[in-house]
Amino acid sequence: MRTLLNKEKHGSLAPAQAFLALFSLNRWKRPMALDPDAIRRLATLSRLALSDDEIAGYSESLTDILTVLDRLGGLPVGDAAPLASPLTEPPPLRDDIAEPVTNREALQAGAPATDNGFYLVPKVLP
């Protein structure tokens, strides 16, 4: 069952969810096909820059894939509870003891740009 987001629910969303709603995948009609605009929206959500050729290709292949995934909707799962992990027992927790990170330089060595222990990114604030 696809749930449609209503305005009341939208109003109570956390910022991240509100952001997702802003892009409003759910505003689409029933996605029999994921058209190029839909792929562009997914690419925006996924933080992926795609070329026009890639968008056209993914429109075709994801539409095909969705026809396979849509088989799920017809399965008689009844009231089966969702299963997120196949672990049969909760794993043991380790003692809550802080351990110093001793290889900070090694961990940062693979970063594209660092300065004095900080990661460098383009300016965020104007």
Binding site: R2, T3, L5, Q17, L25, L34, L42, S46
Partner: peptide
Amino acid sequence: LTGTYALSVGYYDAYYRQAQRVRRC
């Protein structure tokens, strides 16, 4: 892209949650 779609508002129940139910079965 497929995963982002399955987790999107409006499709989460139809795909992700339903897949988890099938996993349970």
